[in-house]
C-alpha cells in the first residue's frame, strides 16, 4: 500500500525537462531513500512529491487524491517536508521555532492549545533538543540546528515526512546522528520517511526501500540488500567498486575501486600495484 504515489510525471523547470514518464510509489511505513548522481532529478522528484513543484504532466496522489487539488493546510497535516535550506528568523528561540510546526493545526481562534504545547515538548524531547528550548537558534551548531528543524517537522505530526538532503553541510558524526534519529522516527513512531541522500553507503545502511535514479529515470528500487550490486553502482554512478557486507549492520557497503595507475607513473605506483596483486 502507498499513501503517496507519483504517476507518469514530467518534471521541468521552465523549459528544461528533468524527468519524463516517472512513476514511483512510496511504500507505507518505509524509510525510502532516493539516491543518484548530481542532476539525476532526485531532489526534483522530492519537490514534486511534496507539491513544491507542479508537474508539467502526470500527477502526484496523496491518499488517492491529486495533491495539488487538496487544501494546503490539509496536506500539511499529512505530509511534512524538511527543505534543504530554511532560514531561522533573527532572534528566534528553539521552542518558538519548533512551535511553528503546529501552524497547519491552528486557526485564527485556536492558536495555542494545550495539545500544541504538549506536542512541541515531545518533538523537542524526541530529537534531544529539549534542553536547548530557551536558546537562540542562531547560536547553535549546524548539527543542533538540523535537529531543531527536524523537531519542527515532527511537531507538524505528519504520518509522512520528506527530507531533502538532511545531512548536507554536516560533520560526519552529525550526519550519522541525524540519520539515526530518522531511523528511530521510522521504527519507533511508525512514520513513513522519504529522504534524498548523497552518500550511497548511508542510503544502503538506513533505507528500508531504496530508489536509484539516473537521468530522470528510476533504474532500480527495492531493499538495499536486493538491489545494491557492483553493476548497479557502475551503471548509476559510473563508479567501479566492490560490494561487501557492512561489518556493523550487514547491509551492502560500497568500496570504490583503487586508483588505476596510469602507464609510467613511476616506481612508487608500480610497487603499490605489485603489493596489491601479491595480496590478492
Amino acid at each position: 500500500m502507498s499513501r503517496l504515489t507519483a504517476e507518469n510525471l514530467t518534471l521541468a523547470y521552465d523549459q528544461r525537462v528533468i524527468a519524463e514518464n516517472l512513476s514511483v510509489a512510496v511504500p507505507d511505513r518505509s524509510f525510502t531513500v532516493i539516491v543518484g548522481p548530481n542532476a539525476c532529478g532526485k531532489s526534483t522528484l522530492l519537490r514534486a512529491l511534496s507539491r513544491m513543484l507542479k508537474p508539467t504532466a502526470g500527477r502526484v496522489l496523496l491518499d488517492g487524491s491529486v495533491i495539488s487539488s487538496l487544501p494546503a493546510k490539509k496536506v500539511a497535516r499529512t505530509l511534512g517536508l524538511l527543505p534543504q535550506s530554511s532560514i531561522a528568523p533573527d532572534g528566534i528561540t528553539v521552542a518558538d521555532l519548533v512551535a511553528r510546526g503546529r501552524y497547519p493545526h491552528q486557526g485564527v481562534l485556536r492558536q495555542w492549545s494545550g495539545e500544541d504545547e504538549r506536542i512541541v515538548r515531545e518533538a523537542m524531547e524526541s530529537t534531544g533538543v529539549g534542553q536547548l528550548a530557551e536558546r537562540y537558534v542562531d547560536e547553535l551548531s549546524g548539527g543542533q540546528r538540523q535537529r531543531v528543524w527536524i523537531a519542527m517537522a515532527l511537531a507538524q505530526q505528519t504520518p509522512l515526512l520528506l527530507l531533502d538532503e538532511p545531512t548536507t553541510y554536516l560533520d560526519i558524526q552529525h550526519q550519522i546522528d541525524v540519520l539515526d534519529l530518522c531511523a528511530e522516527l521510522h521504527e519507533e513512531q511508525g512514520r513513513t520517511l522519504v529522504a534524498v541522500l548523497h552518500d550511497l553507503n548511508h542510503a544502503a545502511r538506513y533505507a528500508s526501500h531504496l530508489i536509484a535514479m539516473k537521468d530522470g529515470r528510476v533504474i532500480a528500487e527495492g531493499a538495499p540488500s536486493d538491489i545494491v550490486t557492483a553493476e548497479l553502482v557502475e551503471d548509476v554512478f559510473g563508479l567501479s567498486c566492490q560490494i561487501i557486507d557492512d561489518p556493523e549492520t550487514g547491509t551492502p557497503l560500497v568500496i570504490p575501486a583503487a586508483r588505476k595507475p596510469r602507464a609510467g607513473t613511476g616506481a612508487a605506483a608500480g610497487a603499490r600495484t605489485e603489493a596489491a596483486t601479491a595480496r590478492s
Binding site: S50, R51, M52, P71, A72, K73, K74, V75, A76, R77, G80, L81, L82, P83, Q84, S85, S86, I87, A88, P89, R100, G101, Y103, P104, A153, Q156
Partner: peptide, 16 residues
Amino acid sequence: RMLEMGDDAAYALGVR
C-alpha cells in the same frame, strides 16, 4: 511569519 523561514518551509507548513 511563516514566510520568514523561506518559501519551502512555509509551503511545507501549508501556507499558500
